[in-house]
């Protein structure tokens, strides 16, 4: 217990406190001027919006993939199982480059979509694609162990009691994996909000349109404006942290309720 907290402080909390202290140097008015400017606000909107969308897409397909990996046998399963982790292993910059070369108008997928009038690269849609790529392993890897651990006996029991397959899924399986799914969702979302390396290549980076919040931080740094950079970082951090806290509180509440 004590060790947990000490280590947490050393590696996470003390380093993170530096950004709050730096931002505090700005004073409240300065903080608002930088951290909540119109341009910053539209960047937050883009970052949080695309992250939310990508995490939702991932929640659905990630669950599906975790399901087929945990429950079914099919040729190449081992390989697919391995491939799921690759977004972590691939440097984000490489992922961004690979994605943009696929989705640009002269890329394999981009050239198919262009005649339909769909532009992916250099639009907010491109950001979503990159974030789907980045976030997928979070959902799959959160759900998969729980799904594998969930014995078939419970489902069989439900089935013997006359439940249809869908009922078994929605009433027995889903509640059991809901915490893991929610966790995966929250993590994919939080990661998406802060992602920089891969998004920068595919976003287009036009102010007010496709400029993500982490890019604004880099812009501030480029002007040697550390307080400004940390101000934006603070806003993002507080927002993501509240989200994570909310999800975790929700789970604690749920666990308590189901225990009664």
């Amino acid at each position: 217990m004590g060790l947990t907290i000490v280590w947490l402080c050393l590696i996470v909390l003390i380093p993170l406190s530096t950004i709050f202290l730096r931002a505090a140097g700005l004073g409240w008015d300065g903080f608002v001027a930088v951290g909540l400017s119109a341009r910053a606000l539209s960047a937050y909107k883009l970052s949080f919006g695309t992250a939310l969308l990508a995490a939702s897409v991932n929640a659905v397909f990630g669950l599906l993939i975790a399901w087929i990996l945990a429950r079914y046998e099919f040729p190449g399963k081992k390989f697919v199982d391995a491939a799921v982790d690759l977004p972590f292993a691939l440097p984000t910059a490489v992922a961004g480059i690979a994605l943009v070369s696929l989705y640009a108008e002269n890329g394999w997928i981009g050239s198919l979509l262009a005649p339909l009038g769909i532009r992916v690269a250099y639009t907010p849609l491109g950001v979503v694609v990159a974030l789907i790529f980045i976030g997928l392993p979070f959902i799959v890897r959160s759900v998969q162990p729980v799904l594998a651990d969930l014995g078939a006996d419970v489902e069989e029991a439900a089935a013997t009691l006359g439940a249809t397959r869908w009922q078994t899924f929605s009433r027995v399986i889903l509640p059991a994996i809901a915490p893991a799914l929610l966790t995966g969702f929250a993590l994919a979302f939080a990661r998406g909000v802060g992602e920089y390396g891969s998004v920068i290549f595919i976003a287009g980076n036009m102010p007010y349109k496709s400029e993500i919040a982490p890019l604004l931080i880099v812009t501030q740094l480029e002007q040697f404006d550390y307080p400004g950079a940390t101000a934006i970082a603070c806003v993002m951090l507080v927002a993501s942290f509240s989200m994570l806290l909310l999800v975790n509180l929700l789970q604690a509440w749920r666990a308590k309720r189901s225990a009664k």
Partner: peptide, 18 residues
């Protein structure tokens, strides 16, 4: 407890740049 879990999650939500 929820606060502690969220603090552990925190590095995920921190932009790599930060």
């Amino acid at each position: 407890k929820s606060l502690l879990i969220s603090l552990i999650d925190l590095p995920f939500s921190v932009s790599p740049v930060v």
